[in-house]
Design a protein around this nucleic acid. Structure first.
Lengths: 208, 208, 208, 208
DNA sequence: GATGAATGAGGCTTCATTCAT
DNA sequence: AATGAATGAAGCCTCATTCAT
């Protein structure tokens, strides 16, 4: 956890440091990121960094918690209007929101994405530190689908949640790879088309 | 490519170096791996390393090509007896072979798995260097399924191949995470059970 | 440019580093000079060096700018009393001042002299970094001579400036080569004698 | 001196090695040149290099002697038809031949030119090893001029020879710097124009 | 609490030379 | 005599962390 010193900093300075860290972790894996890179971007003295954070990992974990919180908030806000939708509409919507989050918060999303490629060990630490987020979301939707009897009751919740999450990661990766190369609009369309194709399979596969 | 100097080395020494490198890349991401770690394990002088390889990347790419070749060979051998099997039996078998490969070659598999988490850039280089493997395998099976009219012709081959590959990675990751903690046999059974559950969904989702 | 860190250092330490660098570059060409040599002489840790300078070149260019500034200052001070002298007296004086500078600042001069033998590329960089000095001095004197109608107007200013500079370098080189081997006084006399001989030719060659 | 082993090599191989060395020393100062660079270009084994030459310096000195010999030969051939020319015509011709040599043997010339920028120490060694060439040529011409009473007898032979040589180096440097950037023909014309301007001054300066 | 200089470990790469085959 | 693998010294640069002011 960042020290109280950090949280006592004036808002603007905290922001500057956070932004610098995001930039660094968006561009580098944890192993490649460096304190040097961050203090330079944030224009703070070396010593200060260690007064705010125990080390890079401390900052990294803090950042990821922040990102998760904002992402969940983003999703909840957008899903709140769809309380009555059926499971498959909901899923389609969830995938769409995921890519919207990337568009609205490219840097946050990039860090989050890089995180998915880190060591099991590091991931474990972050999860320990209170992050369960994504999978739980899918589980919630699946359980809701089971209750509404829209989903085949033979399906294993945990496994399906994992599959849905991974499909999302897979599609998102393709979206990001294509990004910057083609026109954004086409790219988005292509992503949504793939979402539809994937959900076509999944829907047939799991519906009652 | 390793220099001819490397290939001229006596078999035993090449092996020693390769093994040391595998150990290093199994335990570390590319960014974390070091020449130092390898030469120490292989017990060769620093200078020699650079006489054999241009740099770490050179060795890494060579290694991955080797791993791929051996993996493909492994799979082909085991699949050869199943020429007449239907698509879903084949898929189930493929997932099983994948975990068998891990059991027979834990180190190779670990390096291959870590590779999947590397930079897009590094992955691109490796693919450039001649590695397309996995996805193509799935595509082959899907196309065969389409010809045999076992698969819904509405399905997009490329996308499904990606999904199948990612499901494999996802299940394998769980298998590996559990590994070393529980008893191997239970772990394997649990993996195969998950494979069945996943394929239950996929089969329903894509069959004609 | 050296970092602000360097300029914040206490005077004594800056001096120590500068002196060490001068010693290194006086004894070695740029290609032969080493960071190791400098930090040893200056008795600073390796890490500090890189906190002060981006690399050897950074330090080298900084040093040469300093040297040039001091040299120009030296010359201007000594020439200021001769505002009315005729061109040839002035030239003779300039050559004399050059050797006096060497005597007063042997190390600075040695580095400056070595610089003249560096790569065109490196020289270019230094000139880019703001150093035009020498040739301009000669051009100024020649133009003054043309205005005062002491010099044949057929003469090409730029070329003559180059010739005068090179003659100076040539004579200086002989002076330096002889130096340390013979007695300083004789050496100086011999240098001035050669200056007179050279200027005897040049004067006849360019005077109106 | 290269070992007898080297001279016993078949002509073609000697040539290959010599050419490789020329390329290396044309592109690098002595301090920057490396054995590695040469054996790679010449495609000879490392061990062979040390069987032929004691070290880099041995090869370097050998090379320079060869270059000198060929240069002198080149000049003598071209000057032989001008036995009766007056001193200044001869000088003009000499400067012209110098640039022609560069055009006919760019690599040889580049190495020779780099040599002029080496350590006094290294230059000394080469001269020790039997190379006096250039200056002697100028001295010869000057002495001939004195005998023919075309040159002012007050002139110091040694100094004038040094000046003439340095003027040549200076003009040649400008020629080489411009080279590759502008059209060769214009460049040559510009060089010859500068030669004329310089000799205009020198002629006035030294003629009887 | 803020600052930023000090430090040296640790990794990378190149190189000249030797030596066994 | 030819070959080319072995070797480790030497230089480069980056980095995380500490500590005095």
């Amino acid at each position: 956890m960042p020290s109280s010193t950090f949280f006592n900093l004036e808002e603007e300075k905290q922001q500057r440091i956070t932004a610098a860290a995001l930039e660094e972790f968006a561009a580098n894996s944890f192993a490649e990121a460096s304190v040097a890179g961050i203090i330079e971007k944030a224009a703070i003295p070396r010593g200060s960094f260690y007064q705010y954070f125990a080390d890079l990992e401390d900052l990294y974990i803090y950042l990821l918690k922040e990102i998760t919180a904002r992402k969940i908030n983003f999703i909840k806000t957008r899903l709140s209007k769809m309380e009555d939708a059926d499971t498959f509409t909901l899923l389609r919507q969830l995938y769409k929101i995921a890519v919207e989050f990337v568009e609205h918060n490219p840097r946050l999303a990039a860090v989050g994405n890089n995180f998915l490629k880190e060591d099991r060990e590091l991931q474990h630490k972050v999860y320990q530190a209170g992050d369960r987020q994504a999978v739980d979301f899918y589980k919630m939707i699946i359980n809701r689908g089971l209750e509404r009897e829209e989903i085949d009751s033979q399906v294993e919740v945990e496994l399906l949640a994992g599959m849905l999450k991974n499909i999302n990661i897979y599609l998102m990766e393709q979206y990001l790879t294509a990004n910057g190369r083609e026109k954004p609009l086409e790219n988005m369309e292509s992503y949504l088309a793939k979402v539809d194709q994937a959900l076509y399979i999944i829907e047939k596969g799991i519906k009652k």
